[in-house]
């Protein structure tokens, strides 16, 4: 087996003495894509924040591109290649779109032009301040900012949360392009399971902080009973944030 791009081994983590994650192990290969699923409160966000070092680790190991990140502080994990897009978006409201992007640019493969090619809307709005953007534009800017750090793995935490169906579809296609055209490794926490599973190669389901499914995304699509069992969403067909 080739060396994994990201390898998580027996990770246990949480807040203070409370363990939220218990013995979580998985690997993500170069160009891989992982849908991270589970009901609310099952540890999905905690897993992403643990990868970037914002929780208390009780045990386990994290390796990225062969480098052990387990004891590396958060800001160095970002520079090492873990790009994080939090639910809160965290853009700078008093900087323009372009300043938000260039302030953190690392001079890597993701240049301003390349990011604008992926998000033409941000180029149109490049002179607008962060606080003048709509929710959908802020989400695009949050993803674009993470790309400017030239990540090896992009961690997206419910990027569609609270957005209208048109914007959700637009963002899904942008994420599809990042995975298929740009070959970016992505871990995606998302409630729209039926929509994201065809895009990601692998899927993992967390139940009370433990991995209860780890394998092909395709299997979860083809066997709706599995999704029903862990997510209770097997009956959802037109999963666009609306109902037909």
């Amino acid at each position: 087996m080739s060396e994994a791009l990201l390898e998580v081994e027996k990770l246990s983590a949480g807040y203070g003495d409370a363990r939220v994650l218990d013995d979580v192990s998985f690997r993500l290969d170069q160009g891989g894509s992982l849908a991270l699923l589970g009901r609310n409160g099952m540890g999905k966000t905690t897993l992403l924040t643990s990868l970037i070092g914002l929780t208390r680790r009780h045990g386990g190991r994290i390796r990225l591109a062969g480098r052990d990140l387990t004891a590396v502080p958060t800001h160095r994990r970002a520079l090492a290649g873990l790009g994080w897009v939090p639910q809160e978006r965290d853009i700078f409201p008093s900087l323009t779109v372009e300043e938000n992007l260039t302030a953190i640019a690392t001079g890597g493969a993701w240049t301003l032009d390349r990011v604008y090619d992926l998000f033409p809307r941000l180029m149109e709005r490049r002179s607008n301040m962060g606080n003048q953007l709509s929710g959908g534009e802020q989400q695009m800017l949050a993803i674009a900012r993470a790309l400017m750090l030239d990540p090896k793995v992009l961690l997206l935490d419910e990027p569609m949360e609270g957005l209208a169906p048109l914007i959700v579809q637009e963002l899904f296609r942008i994420i599809q392009r990042m995975i298929e055209r740009d070959g970016l490794a992505v871990i995606l926490v998302e409630q729209h399971a039926h929509q994201i599973l065809p895009l990601t190669r692998d899927a993992m389901i967390l139940e009370r902080g433990r991995v209860v499914y780890s394998g092909d995304s395709r299997r979860l699509i083809d066997e709706p009973a599995l999704l029903d069992r862990w997510l209770g969403v097997g009956a959802v067909e037109l999963d666009d944030g609306t109902s037909a």
Partner: peptide
Amino acid sequence: KAIDIIRNEHRALAAVLRA
């Protein structure tokens, strides 16, 4: 797969119909 494509097209159409 074909069924994914059909559902994707439905989702995109649904989003525009809602708008």
